[in-house]
Nucleic acid binder design. Structure first.
Lengths: 337, 337
DNA sequence: GGATCGAATGATATCGATATCAAGATATCG
DNA sequence: CGATATCTTGATATCGATATCATTCGATCC
């Protein structure tokens, strides 16, 4: 029982180690380790005793030590592309829902989530991760190649196929989102649909393709109205320009709820009835759209589930299982428009 | 040069260690360590040579080993309260901006951000963190006490003083947000202001207090109109009920942009002019409000900066510096209402 | 010229946990 | 009763990095 510590080179609040517990319990370190990890190799009584002691003294496992010994980090890095001021701001609720799903799934699998922005991603801790998840828009171009070089299991959130080299992608099935919008319009007999959005965004291009293809199967060709902003104003403006050009249309599929709401406002101003004269479908099913008057019909993507899926894929890759890209189905929430 | 490895108990992709580098460079491990950490104790030439080798072979520092030796984790855990069910949908966007600020500040200080949801927070890795940041609504009641017991440096996002035991709080100055709204109304000569919101939420109560107090200094007493939902409909409904009760009012301070927009819509329906007859101020300065017609005046909170501040406080605490709670000033963005 | 100093490098111990192998104790069997 | 199997525990080595102390070598000093 030597009470005095020999030295204290790196001062820190002294935390209990397994060795300390071992001494307290009158057993060896290894027995403590086994007891705490529920190993069947220790006597039940010993196990109880050690665990009780651990609780009583507030023992905390040293994660670094374990990870070092086990040669793994039990960590997945999530790299988020966050442009502070850009077209699609981080005000979008979706990254957070995605993160929620990721975090939930990974932590319940005993993994930690290391959150990083693009700049910070060169940090050593990221390289030490067992796997990588990439989120954000600019991600698919350079970032994929950049992080791919790390040689870690990696899953990317985004559009399928695109740049579809060999990395795994999870994303919302934008094409199918366009298809179900088209189906809806067809089922209620619309013949002159309009698409509002910016096909330069890969996601929106997919929506457009799905929309166009499905309509084409019924001999209908929609009008493409390009709009770069996804604001309410932009939607208003879009419809006004249609009216100014005396275009005939009876349905609008907008690439965001905001666009859709703007369109509806403009329609009302023009004396058109929604949905009697013109039917409108938005995208993202935002709470705002749901409480709009009239309540907006919209294509919903389940972000939370997307996060869960991303997490599962990385975990599978980490464990050496084969993994494939996957697109998540979207659903159409039909409300009053 | 023994080529065969003795054993391989824990198989993993073989990664270069300092010992390997040392052998390649013909120096000892410690010299490598010093060379890579820019220590002045090594000859400049040696340092260059070792660093070049490290780059060439893609050497990666083993973070666990370093953390173990250094007895620290260089990690701050962020615990996010995420209720999937919405209720307070307006809260969705803010945690991400906050996270952005936190992440940016911490990683640039060489720290890692460990993201956790409430359930996962018991995970060992959280206890291993050097510090804790708590985000989310339910946080202030039990969570603070719960995590406080860990004895780690901890900073909480929320309302000041409240439950104000001894932990550090960073938050938006809601009271001051109410004050500046009041000041604005006073400066443009409004005499009959209305407050719409739910004072049961601590943040909103603060806004109300600030609003009321500032007005009181000029002998004006606002009307409190309680609304539990923060939707557009709720705002519409609020104004209609005012009209039905034939209440006289010339200004509205709403606790969310959505409420404000609903209010404006109802006012327009009632034939009132905004801002001529009634002036309206919202809260949060959402992009949606900015692109509303007419563009909404609103109280802005700088979330990103809040995140930075949270991060700085934990870091300061970790380094043993004294730290105080701090409320961030809000600004009034005056647009057309 | 011997002592002293500084620069550069190395040997060793250490952080806290766990894998591996060995050994003691007890039980079971022929 | 001796031998083997089973259960339980321990000794030791190891993961990869760094702090500490020791050493070497050349330069400088009086």
């Amino acid at each position: 029982m030597t009470q005095a510590k020999k030295k204290q080179p790196l001062a820190q609040r002294p935390s209990l180690t397994m060795a300390d517990l071992a001494e307290l319990a009158g057993v060896s370190k290894i027995t403590v380790s086994r007891a705490l990890s529920e190993s069947p190799l220790v006597n039940a009584q010993t196990r109880e005793r050690v665990q009780a002691l651990a609780r009583k003294h507030g023992y905390k496992l040293n994660v670094s030590a374990r990870n070092l010994r086990l040669r793994r980090s039990q960590t997945v890095a999530v790299i988020v592309e966050m442009k502070p001021s850009s077209e699609r701001t981080m005000w979008d609720p979706y990254p957070l829902s995605l993160l929620g799903g990721i975090s939930q799934e990974l932590t319940s699998a005993g993994y930690s989530v290391l959150l990083t922005t693009r700049q910070g991603a060169s940090h050593a801790a990221v390289q030490a991760a067992d796997g990588l998840i990439l989120l954000g828009q600019g991600v698919r171009q350079d970032a994929v190649r950049l992080y791919g070089k790390l040689g870690l299991p990696m899953v990317v959130w985004g559009a399928a196929g695109e740049g579809g080299d060999n990395h795994t992608v999870v994303g919302s099935d934008n094409r199918q989102g366009g298809v179900i919008a088209a189906e809806r319009f067809l089922s209620i007999g619309r013949r002159h649909p309009v698409f509002i959005g910016n096909p330069d965004h890969p996601e929106m291009a997919q929506r457009l393709f799905g929309f166009v293809d499905e309509l084409a199967r019924h001999g209908i060709k929609p009008l493409l109205l390009r709009r770069d902003d996804f604001t309410l104003e932009s939607g208003v403006d879009a419809v006004r320009s249609l009216a100014a050009r005396k275009v005939r249309f009876d349905a609008i599929f907008a690439c965001s709820d905001l666009l859709a709401m703007g369109a509806i406002r403009a329609l009302v101003e023009l004396g058109q009835s929604v949905p009697n004269d013109v039917s409108v479908i938005g995208y993202d099913d935002t709470p705002l759209g749901a409480s709009f008057l009239p309540p907006l019909s919209s294509v919903r993507q389940n972000w939370q589930e997307g996060g869960v899926l991303l997490a599962r894929k990385v975990l599978a890759m980490i464990h050496g299982q084969p993994v494939q890209s996957q697109m998540m189905a979207t659903t159409l929430v039909v409300r009053s428009t």
